[in-house]
């Protein structure tokens, strides 16, 4: 009696629950009325994926999955920051920049 059975059961159950949450987050990414909602869903996907890697690391005994989880977290963070900047810059463009008929960007002077 070393609790091996419980550990195996917990691993499978955790993987099942995490897959379900992955699915739910994906539904939000598909549904999301605006871009920002989709980015929140994407953020959630990255976090759940890190958790899945940790569980797989426990089940297989490869600690290399930890490095992959760290790298994924880094990339996910950068992606979120880039998306936030993109959302902000799009608003700036809509408000302060206009394109003339030749397609050249100019600053709006609306004062």
């Amino acid at each position: 009696m070393t609790g091996e059975g419980f550990l195996a059961f917990a691993g499978v159950a955790a993987l099942g629950i995490l897959s379900l949450s992955l699915l739910l987050a994906t539904i939000r990414v598909v549904l999301g009325p605006t871009l920002t909602d989709r980015v929140v869903g994407l953020d959630m996907l990255v976090m759940v994926a890190m958790g899945i890697m940790a569980v797989i690391g426990i089940r297989t005994g490869f600690t290399l999955y930890l490095d992959i989880a760290i790298a994924l977290g880094l990339v996910g963070f950068l992606a979120t920051v880039a998306f936030a900047r993109f959302v902000m810059s799009r608003r700036y463009e809509a408000e302060f920049v206009s394109r003339d008929e030749r397609g050249i960007y100019r600053e709006k002077h609306n004062d």
């Binding site: 609790g3 550990l7 059961f9 995490l18 949450s21 987050a25 939000r28 959630m44 958790g51 569980v55």
Partner: peptide, 25 residues
């Protein structure tokens, strides 16, 4: 003891991840 602790932590972590996903939805 270690197996029990690790197993229950896995279940708890998965549970919180699920609630977060439900919340996002």
């Amino acid at each position: 003891l270690q197996n029990l602790l690790v197993g229950s932590m896995m279940l708890l972590g998965a549970f919180f991840a699920l609630t977060a996903a439900i919340g996002v939805l």
